[in-house]
Amino acid sequence: MRKLAAAALVGVLVAVLPATAALAADSKPDIAVTSAADKANYAEGETFTITVTVTNKSSVDAKHVHYTGGDSEGVDGVAYGELSTGFDLAAGATKTVQITGKTNHVAWQSGYGFVAFALAADNGEANDADNITSVRLLVAGAFGDLGGYVFQGESDDAEWTPRTPGVPGVKVVATSADGKTKYAEAVTDAKGLFRFAHLPAGDVLLTFTAPAGWKILAGENGEEDHTLAQVRGDDSDEPRVFVPAKKVAASSPTVSPSATATATATASPSASASASAAPSASSSAGPGLPVTGDNTMLFVGAAAVAVAVGIALVLVARRRRVHLQA
């Protein structure tokens, strides 16, 4: 009986604990918020409307969901509407609200303005990571200059000073932030300085191509060859981008064994034949005899016999002549 009672108690705990954990996890509402602007681009002074989508992801009703604070730039007269007055949001429910405002001259100079804010409920917030949102409002029309240095450094956190040696010959390409539109390109001078004129205001992607023997140390942990920079319509031409580059061993081209074999295999037959037939450096300068493979000693012996026979015949003929004259 004791074993049965213990087993029953374990079963009750197994059934109750998950439910208790779920209740504890949903003791507060979980407000998630996203937002989107009504247009892709705005003019200076134009009215914008931002649609805000609020979702209660928990099983607990959210009481008095409201705007709790945020930041903005390049905009005027932002009206938060229901986000200011607040509203209740049932568990699992979603609600859309709107905020409005106007872009100003700062947005025109920067190429964009933005609105960022956070929401919360009076009965708490289970997850602060997803109740914050921001919207960027692009404002075209302004242009500005952008310059910087590519300088010698051993790490991505190296600091530039006016006496820091530069890296000349680095190609710098300026494109839109998404890399799809190319604006211009430049090459660093002897001091590592590069300059761009008349770039559109806003975020610009700079991509660096270093000469052999150098490695660009841009981006996170210095592992990238590109970085984002902001162009402002009211900026001077003072350099504002500083990218270190580290000296590395220049790689030299190598010939693979397969390439060597291919080169050997593709040599012309005539060239090979000429090479094999050519006399060695220690041979006589005169013309060489053809090599037939026959045993030349037999010819030498036969020639010697023929010479001996010829001499004997001459001597016999001379004796006969003397004898006849006598």
Rank of each mutant, 00 (worst) to 15 (best):
N56R: 04
F117Q: 06
Y67W: 14
D76I: 02
T103F: 04
A62W: 00
S84E: 15
A93M: 09
G86S: 06
K95W: 07
I99E: 10
S84D: 14
G77P: 12
T94D: 09
Y80L: 10
T55D: 13
E73F: 12
G86Y: 04
S110W: 07
E73A: 14
G77C: 10
A90D: 15
H64N: 13
L119W: 02
D128E: 14
N123C: 07
K102G: 09
F114T: 06
A79W: 10
T94L: 08
F114Y: 08
L89G: 04
T103N: 07
E125G: 03
N104A: 05
V60W: 04
H105V: 11
V75N: 04
A120C: 09
A121M: 00
D122E: 14
D122L: 11
G111Y: 05
G69W: 03
E125A: 07
A62E: 05
D71L: 09
A79P: 12
A93G: 10
K102Y: 08
A79I: 14
L83P: 01
G111C: 01
T100E: 02
S110K: 13
D122P: 08
G101S: 06
T55M: 13
D130K: 06
S72E: 13
T68H: 11
V54T: 00
E82C: 12
T100P: 03
N104Y: 02
G86Q: 01
H105T: 14
S110T: 10
A120Y: 06
T55A: 15
N56D: 09
V97F: 05
E125L: 03
E125N: 07
D76Q: 08
S110V: 10
L83E: 03
T103S: 07
G77M: 14
V97I: 09
G74D: 00
A118G: 14
V106M: 13
T85M: 09
A126D: 06
S84G: 12
T85G: 11
T96A: 10
A79K: 15
D130P: 04
I99H: 07
L83A: 04
G92I: 01
V106E: 14
Q109G: 10
V60S: 14
F114W: 06
T55F: 13
K102L: 09
S84N: 12
N127F: 08
A79N: 15
G113L: 01
